[in-house]
Each structure stands twice: as structure tokens, then as C-alpha cells.
Design a protein around this nucleic acid. Structure first.
Length: 485
RNA sequence: GCUCCUAUAGUCAAGCGGUUAAGACAUCGCCCUUUCACGGCGGUAACACGGGUUCGACUCCCGUUGGGAGUACCA
């Protein structure tokens, strides 16, 4: 292992139409490892499966990575020294590499047809047999091979696995893993159509692109020994492997498209901030050294360490995501939050002549997701129907009588305010409180109730009045007085 | 079936043979307070089980059980 070799990582998604959270996490870790080490982050599109190709899927990949800030240094759109970066454009080279392996005795031609292969997978009694190729063509003589080739018999090229001994590979998160070579299937490298299988293309691509750290899901853990053998057969340096455990929906099932919460897009649609999502998934399967949990992407690039990646599957917890989202919202400046929330307020509130600044300020500490705000602002357009019982509050020492008294005292004071805003209202009402020598709640609770008609609101009486304006506030207080009389 | 991986509170997780077994989210209580939040303080809650190894195991080994993955001319 050369210490000075520049770190190069790659994210190699298949364009399947949406960005799975587990995939995005892999992309994030891949990116972070490159950045942490001052290396290159490469994007390679693995589109060799024409059947699964989805229109526009590549854009989803681009857009997601851009939005989350996972900027790539080389990729299909920006090029780079080891292109092309789209696998389907690299097809020409693989067969040559496979032929080299045939020559060196690490691979061989196989002429078995599908029928014969299928028959191997079933026992005479119909039960499923060991799903391994029986190596029928492994020992054909040069002449036999040539004869079949000349006759134009379709073939594949298979990897020739050692029959005995063991193969050990090293993974940065799982450590050394050893398997019996006898367990390894003589996997297909080149298909009948001359195209490489994923397993083969991946190794060749990673090597020719100079990838030093391979980050991927741990579903590849079992194929890693085969990869290693391939690298060795070519005489190539084996990259550093980092296998990540899956992201789960619950104890037994993976996060899936069906659940509607598996993709990055879905999360955004639910109201989550991209920074919060990135922050959360970083934590899902990785633990920072210290106790800080809220990180910007730049901070993550500093803090990230492979040793913090965990081995067991992690369950995606929307509640924790929500808490992190809330932390991001509280971290915004009041101006940022206002800018962010006003468009959402306008989805639910028709009136335009309200004090958005005060409204935003009372909403900010109470908003975890912007989709939560609807019921916090539903009193603005019109006063909800409410029962006089709402005026009774034990702790505030209020009841219908005291409330009537309070509202009657409040009305003229508010009427007298020229410049209607939160400060002047506060000043006026607290002046009245001092004058009457009553508890804050005794006066303010009825105001809040009369103005909102709700038992729970974002903001107190002063803020509510400021938000809905003088005219509307006075009208609602008069209505309250009327109801209580 | 076979092979590989994995196992600390409800969840994410720290821990690398000797700890009062961190922290965060959730939950509960208190304080603050014009409601609810926010904020502050505190509480409940975990080493899956059984064998070893060791003076000593959450930590190492072996099983069992639970969970995940692989076993394609898909990626």
C-alpha cells in the first residue's frame, strides 16, 4: 500500500429513477472520504442494464447530488482524465481484459446453453439444488474450444476460481473475512452478447479509473472474494473496501420504495430540509468522535472517519430526523426563517395584511416541519367558533366573569393605540396590568382566547393581536365581550 | 438448504479485559412562562441466551436464538 497515493472514490449508481436514502448515504460517505483525504470524488453512471433504464433517472442523480452539495470532481457531464464516465460507453474494453484472463489461465470459455444451466439448478426430485455452475467447460482442450469458436457456438467467459484453499480480503469496517475457495462460483465475466457482467465491469472500471477506496452496500460483501481474485489475476492493487450495512424501515424490512419514505425526493416533499436529511443520514450508521450531532457538510468532511461506521443495520427513524430538522430551523436567523416560511403560510392563509415578522417569530420555535404549521395559523383568516369555557383557566385564575371584566378593560386601551405593533401593544397591555394590579395571565389569557378562539396558539395575546391587526383584534374582542355578557 | 455478516435502552449509538456502561432522539417529572412550544434541570430505560478463556468479561473464543445479505448471462 503506497501511503502517498491520492485518494479517489467513486459513487456508481444505476439510473433507476429515484434516489434511495441508503444510496444517498453511500454517496455521502463516499464523498466524505474523498474530501477528508483531499482526494477526488468521481461519479460514474452504471447504465448497462438496458431493461431497467428509466428516462430522466440520470437527472435525478445529478440533481440530488447537487442539491445536497456532493459535488463531483469527475463525471459524465464534466469529464475527466479517465472517461468516459458512463458505463455503457465503456463497453468496448472489457472483452479484451477478459481475454487476457483466458490467456493467463484465470478464465475460460463456456459453451453451456441455458437449458443445461437450468437443469443444474434442480434435483431429480424437483427440489432446488446447489446453485453453482458445475464447471463443465472448465477443462475443454484448446482444440475443443477453437472448434466450437469456429463453429460459431455462443459462449460466455467465466472466471476460473481456485478449487482449494481460502481467500481472505480486508474490509475497513468488517475486518478480515476469509472464505473457502470451493464456495466460489465460476462466475460469468462476459455474457453471450459480449458485454461484461456488473461484477467484471466494476473491477475493471474501478481499476482503470484509479479508484482507491470502494464504498458500497454490504450486499457485495459475499462477492468481494471474487473481486479480490480478479484483481490478483490481473496483478492489480486491491482497493480499500468500505462496506456499509443497509438502512432499514424496521427490524426486518429494508427501506423500500413502497413505503413512500425511501427516497430523498419523498423526504423533501414531506417538508424536510436537505441539510437536515444529509446530517441525519450521516449519523445513521456512523458515529462522530465527540458529542456534537449537528454538522454542516464541511464539518462532516472534517469529522468523518471510517472507523466510526457501524456494522449492523440501522433503522431509519423519522422522529429523530424531525428533531434534527427542528434543530436546523431553530438555527436559522429570524430573517432566514421568515423567508423560508412565508410561502408556506400563504398556502394556508388568505389574508395578506398580517404581520409576517411577528408570525414568523412565534412560529420558528414551534416548527419542526413546515407541513406542521397549518393548524398553528388556522385562526388568522377567521375566528373559529369557540365555547366560553375556554375562558376558564385554573392557573391563570380566570373564568367567564373575570374574562369579561378583563376584556372590557382592554378594549379602550387597545382602541387608543395609534401605531399598532407588538411593542406598542405590549406596552399598553402591561401598562394596564400594572394599573389594575393583576397577574399577567388574568388579563392576557382572555385576550388570547378572544382573539384566537383556541386553547393553544403559537404566541400569546400580544403577538396574536399584532399578527392579525388592529381592526380584526378589536372586532374579536368585542365579539368576546358580547359572548360573555 | 448452503455461505458470509451482524447483535449495548423504543431508535441511532459510545465503549476495544477492570467504567457509577457516554451522548442524542423519544418518553416522564420539575423550573421558566400570558397558552403551547423553545430553553434549563432531573428521572425511567440496555450489554439476546448458554458455554468456555481469564484473577476479572459488554469487550476474546465456541454454540443457540434473532436480524441482514449472497447464492443471476441484474446491478
Amino acid at each position: 500500500m503506497s501511503e502517498t497515493k491520492r485518494v479517489r472514490t467513486r459513487f456508481a449508481p444505476s439510473p433507476t429513477g429515484y434516489m434511495h436514502i441508503g444510496n444517498l448515504r453511500t454517496a455521502l460517505y463516499t464523498y466524505l472520504i474523498a474530501r477528508k483525504n483531499g482526494g477526488d470524488f468521481i461519479l460514474r453512471i452504471e447504465d448497462t442494464d438496458q431493461e431497467r433504464y428509466v428516462e430522466g433517472a440520470v437527472d435525478v442523480i445529478y440533481n440530488t447530488l447537487k442539491m445536497t452539495g456532493l459535488n463531483w470532481d469527475e463525471g459524465p457531464d464534466i469529464g475527466g482524465p479517465v472517461g468516459p464516465y458512463v458505463q455503457s460507453e465503456r463497453m468496448g474494453m472489457f472483452k479484451e481484459y477478459a481475454l487476457k484472463l483466458v490467456e493467463s489461465g484465470h478464465a475460460y470459455y463456456c459453451f453451456c446453453d441455458k437449458e443445461r444451466l437450468d437443469s443444474l439448478k434442480k434435483n431429480e426430485d424437483g427440489t432446488t439444488a446447489i446453485a453453482m455452475y458445475d464447471r463443465h467447460c472448465r477443462n475443454l482442450s484448446k482444440e475443443e474450444v477453437q472448434a466450437k469458436l469456429d463453429a460459431g457456438v455462443p459462449y460466455v467467459i467465466r472466471q476460473k476460481m481456485p478449487l482449494e484453499g481460502t481467500t481472505t480480503f480486508h474490509d475497513e469496517v468488517y475486518g478480515d473475512i476469509t472464505v473457502e475457495n470451493a464456495e466460489l462460483d465460476d462466475q460469468i465475466l462476459i455474457k453471450t452478447d459480449g458485454m461484461p457482467t456488473y461484477n467484471f465491469a466494476n473491477v475493471v472500471d474501478d481499476h482503470t479509473m484509479g479508484i482507491t477506496h470502494v464504498v458500497r452496500g454490504n450486499e457485495y460483501l459475499s462477492s468481494a472474494p471474487k473481486y479480490n481474485l480478479l484483481y490478483q489475476a490481473f496483478g492489480w492493487e486491491v482497493p480499500t473496501y468500505i462496506h456499509c450495512s443497509p438502512v432499514m424501515k424496521d427490524q426486518t424490512s429494508k427501506l423500500s420504495k413502497r413505503n413512500g419514505d425511501a427516497s430523498f425526493e419523498d423526504l423533501l416533499a414531506k417538508g424536510y430540509l436537505t441539510e437536515a436529511v444529509v446530517n441525519y443520514i450521516a449519523l445513521l450508521g456512523w458515529a462522530p468522535k465527540g458529542e456534537q450531532e449537528i454538522f454542516t457538510l464541511e464539518e462532516l468532511a472534517q469529522e468523518f472517519d471510517i472507523s466510526g461506521i457501524s456494522k449492523s443495520p440501522a433503522i431509519f427513524d423519522p422522529v429523530k430526523l424531525k428533531a434534527i430538522n427542528a434543530a436546523y430551523i431553530r438555527k436559522m436567523t429570524p430573517e432566514e426563517f421568515k423567508e423560508y416560511i412565508v410561502p408556506h403560510i400563504q398556502k394556508y392563509v388568505k389574508r395578506q395584511d398580517i404581520d409576517y415578522t411577528v408570525l414568523a417569530s412565534v412560529l420558528q420555535p414551534r416548527t419542526e416541519l413546515f407541513t406542521d404549521i397549518e393548524e398553528l395559523i388556522d385562526y388568522i383568516d377567521e375566528l373559529p367558533e369557540y365555547d366560553n369555557a375556554l375562558y376558564c383557566h385554573k392557573k391563570m385564575k380566570t373564568n367567564e366573569e373575570t374574562s369579561l371584566e378583563a376584556l372590557k378593560a382592554v378594549l379602550p386601551v387597545l382602541e387608543g393605540i395609534e401605531n399598532w405593533n407588538a411593542e406598542t401593544i405590549h406596552e399598553a397591555l402591561f401598562g394596564l396590568i400594572a394599573e389594575l394590579g393583576v397577574k399577567n395571565g388574568w388579563l392576557l389569557w382572555p385576550v388570547r382566547t378572544a382573539v384566537s378562539g383556541k386553547p393553544v396558539t403559537a404566541g400569546g395575546g400580544v403577538e396574536l393581536c399584532a399578527i392579525i391587526g388592529k381592526e380584526e383584534s378589536l372586532a374579536r374582542i368585542r365579539k368576546g365581550i358580547e359572548k360573555l355578557s
